[in-house]
Measured scan of single mutants.
Amino acid sequence: NQASVVANQLIPINTALTLVMMRSEVVTPVGIPAEDIPRLVSMQVNRAVPLGTTLMPDMVRGYA
Rank of each mutant, 00 (worst) to 15 (best):
E25G: 09
T18M: 06
M43I: 04
S42F: 12
T18V: 07
V6P: 01
V20G: 10
P33L: 08
T18F: 03
N46Y: 09
N46V: 15
T15K: 12
A3C: 03
Q9F: 08
G31F: 02
A64N: 08
P57Q: 05
V20P: 12
V45F: 00
M43P: 00
L40E: 01
V49G: 01
L40I: 06
P33S: 11
I37R: 08
T53H: 10
V45R: 00
I11L: 09
P50Q: 06
M59T: 08
L19Y: 13
T15E: 13
S24D: 15
G52Q: 05
V5Y: 01
V26K: 15
M59H: 13
E35Y: 11
T18E: 07
L40A: 01
Y63S: 04
V49R: 03
P12T: 14
I37L: 09
M59W: 12
S4V: 02
Q2A: 15
I32C: 03
I37G: 05
D36A: 14
M59I: 05
A3K: 15
V49Y: 02
P33M: 07
E35V: 09
P38R: 06
N1M: 15
V60R: 00
M21S: 05
R39N: 10
N14A: 13
A34E: 07
V20T: 13
I13Y: 15
V20H: 10
V26Y: 14
G52C: 03
V26G: 05
G62M: 09
R39D: 07
R23G: 13
V27N: 04
Q44V: 12
V30P: 12
P57E: 08
P50R: 10
L51I: 14
P12M: 11
R47N: 11
T18C: 04
M21Y: 11
V27Q: 06
P38V: 09
G31N: 01
G62H: 08
D58E: 08
V20D: 14
M22C: 03
Q2S: 07
A64S: 13
N46A: 12
P38S: 14
L10G: 12
V27C: 03
M56I: 11
D36P: 00
E25T: 11
V49P: 02
A16D: 08
L51K: 11
L17N: 00
M21R: 03
I11A: 00
N46K: 10
L55F: 10
T15C: 03
E35I: 14
M56K: 06
V60F: 05
